[in-house]
Design a protein around this nucleic acid. Sequence first.
RNA 1: GUGGCUGUAGCUCAGUUGGUUAGAGCACUGGAUUGUGGUUCCAGGGGUCGGGGGUUCGAAUCCCCUUAGCCACCCCA
Length: 453
Amino acid sequence: MSDSEKPKKRQLIQPRTLKGFRDYLPETMIPREQLIQTAREVYRSFGFGPIDTPTLEYLEILTGKGSEETDRQLYKFQDHGGRDVGMRFDLTVPLARFVAQHINELGTPFKRYHIAPVWRGENTQRGRYREFMQCDFDTIGTLSVAADIETGLVINALLSAIGFERFTIHLNNRQVLNGLLQKEGLEEQATPVLRSLDKLAKIGEDKVIQEMMATAGTTEAQARNVLAMAALEGTNEEILTQLQPIIAGNELGEQGVERLGKILSGMQAGGVPAERIKLDVSIARGLDYYTGAIFETFLDDLPGIGSVCSGGRYDNLAELYSKRQLPGIGASLGLDRLLAAMEELDMLAKVKTPADVLVTYFDKGALEKYLEIAASLRAVGLKVEVFPEPKKLGQQLKYADTRGFGYAVIAGEDELASNTLQVKDLATGESTAFPIESAATELAEVMKKAVQP
RNA sequence: GUGGCUGUAGCUCAGUUGGUUAGAGCACUGGAUUGUGGUUCCAGGGGUCGGGGGUUCGAAUCCCCUUAGCCACCCCA
């Protein structure tokens, strides 16, 4: 073969994903889907209904309230018709547009959940990607404290259903903060002051004071007064009592404290253990648009990972798109953060298959028998895979073991001749013989017992 | 977007002052007289050293650019 006849090495395209974008393998996708399913069920159990909106919106919809930061992170381009479009960077702005457009058919109060990916072209870091899932729930069109309370109840139900017992829902009311700022004459600088305050847990008291003086132009006394309130300690009731004199004389603040008390007792009446709720006057969330209750949720065993479920109340969701004032309250489950936490706390089963049972393909001539067996197992609700090749039994068992199957069904000449199946528990290695007719129901029984002993 | 660190097989890494055909463990595929895995033994496949350019007789090793990851800042609607 001369050089010219040698097959040239094909120029391959390097397989890779964009910065901040990820592939999900079955072993990460399985717990991910489980988590989403749990969230869905909890949202539905409170009467929230599903919605979806387009990935792409007119650019003006997304940049409506835009800061420079927003613009910088927004994925935007011109579509084939020359329209300026952008990819949604959260689910709240699309909700605002959606509500402005449909509120007359929807009526109020309107409760929806929305689980969908969003895109932000920000710099990546651990746990921060450019494409990620948001799991929002919101109640639109009511100012009632009942909706505030329910938000707390949903957060509690969510984390409980996912399997957490030790977590703390931090609760605050922006009205209290705003009341104090009014009292201190800092209304104008509310945003930078609260942004600094939000960093209290992270950078400490002295630095927060320095930052407030530098970026918000407060006096040291003003900064200290704001911090004094944020530093209150004690039981929730004690904090409420201490707040009253601090805020006294400011109507907004007084209302805010009263409302906090109602949310607190309401959440407990709704079944949230008192020790899971913590009044935390320091949390502000960096968001300008929160006007009332604010929630942040921390895992007691992994507080460093940050809030895994956050949200709050806003006065006027759709102000940019509608003349109708639509107040609302909602929160968002931090799916990726939560999954990272669960992995770190070893709460995720390491499984590469969603199936429970592998039917081994043992006897070359008995494929149709195996297909029948698999069908009968599926009929009682089991997830079943038939191995596609009549390979050596040891290899098939190894396959089942490494993927995380719970059981293997083995049926060779001997079993088929006696009309039985051998069901092997892969965790213990024990085999049981079942009559072929009743094997499906008996195995289903066994598995049910294994799940709830 | 700014600054710092890093990038060798699917994964975790080794690779001496730049010097022949780049290694290990795990994982993967197959085998150990043809019906039982998660512990053994043997064999095998897999890398143009993230990509491109430069210096050099010679580059995984030095220089530049680029790309990706991590960390900090920023921000977190």
